[in-house]
């Protein structure tokens, strides 16, 4: 008889307590729901803090924010935006250069709530396997959306983009947009694990390109303390980003430099050995190794 599967993070909960083992997850959910709430108190209660949606928003008639991806597609069709959008896009790009491009995915994007739910259910139901699609596919789709925009002269991807469709749907009325979101949910639940956000979504792919140079990173100052429990791999939506930094593959520094790390912080939560922490990409040193233990013990 095989032992009952222990849910990832059980050890961390035992070690740190439930709250600390869910700290970043709770903060992240609070942030996601909070941003949605800021957008929704306007249309729902007439309290206009933020107008617009994730493509372009205007906060308190002071702060313009514009999505660089949709604006670049618009530019490719041959249209140059007005000044306000340019200011907005500059602020957004600067912000994600600081905090990490795909931080957008895990801390802001509403579809993350859908796909995280699908993944939670998939784990709960013990669904395994499914179609294999390369994680590079999203970059091909990203390229395709620009070609489609240039050739059709329209922002073609906006016809089907679930990210903007969901946010616009919540703030302006969703229509049949829920069907698209259901499709994303079912894809992640039954067809492939982390299918939409991890393999297909061109919005995430675009933001990952910004994230290549971003400052805020997950650092592994105590990677030597890793006991190979694999909990971080189990919860990470982009598992491939952890290994090089954790196992010092090719002499990698204890720093997750992969552009697709979403800075969700779940690895920090579930690690009972506190291997991970948020830090900048600059400086910082590895904590001294316990004698006799070698960095990068290969698995």
């Amino acid at each position: 008889m095989s032992p009952a599967p222990v849910r990832p993070g059980a050890e961390a909960i035992a070690e740190k307590g439930w709250f600390l083992a869910h700290k970043w997850l709770l903060l992240r959910r609070f942030n996601q729901v909070g941003i949605l709430a800021l957008f929704l108190v306007g249309p729902w209660y007439g309290l206009w803090i933020v107008k617009g949606n994730l493509s372009f928003s205007y906060t308190l008639n002071i702060l313009p924010l514009a999505d660089p991806y949709v604006l670049l597609q618009s530019l490719v069709t041959g249209h140059a935006p007005e000044k306000l959008a340019l200011i907005g896009v500059t602020i957004v790009v600067a912000f994600y250069l600081l905090v990490g491009g795909r931080t957008y995915c895990s801390w802001v994007c509403p579809v993350n709530l859908v796909t995280d739910l699908a993944n939670w259910l998939r784990t709960r139901l013990g669904l395994k396997g499914g179609a294999h699609v390369s994680r590079q596919t999203r970059y091909w789709i990203l390229g395709m959306t620009f070609v489609a925009a240039a050739v059709s002269g329209t922002i073609a991807w906006e016809m089907v983009n679930p990210v903007t469709m969901m946010h616009r749907g919540l703030t302006f009325g969703i229509g049949l947009g829920w069907a698209v979101l259901l499709a994303v949910f079912l894809l992640d639940l039954f067809v492939m694990r982390h299918g939409w956000c991890g393999r297909l979504c061109p919005v995430g792919a675009f933001y990952s390109l910004i994230g290549k140079f971003s400052v805020l990173r997950v650092r592994l100052p105590a990677r030597a303390a890793c006991n190979d429990c694999m909990d971080c791999f189990a919860v990470c939506p982009e598992q491939q980003v952890i290994r090089p930094a954790l196992k010092a593959i090719g002499g990698a520094p204890p720093l997750i430099l992969e552009a697709n790390c979403t800075n969700c912080g779940r690895c920090i939560d579930v690690c009972s050995k506190d291997v991970f922490s948020f830090a900048t990409r600059f400086g910082g040193s590895e904590t001294a190794l316990p004698s006799g233990k070698q960095v990068g013990n290969r698995v």
Binding site: K51, S55, V70, S74, T77, G78, P81, I155, R168
Partner: peptide, 15 residues
């Protein structure tokens, strides 16, 4: 033809 390339569907006009 130009509008569908220029409009980023933000809904600011609606608001």
């Amino acid at each position: 033809a130009e509008f569908s390339g220029a409009c980023i569907r933000c809904g600011m006009c609606v608001r």
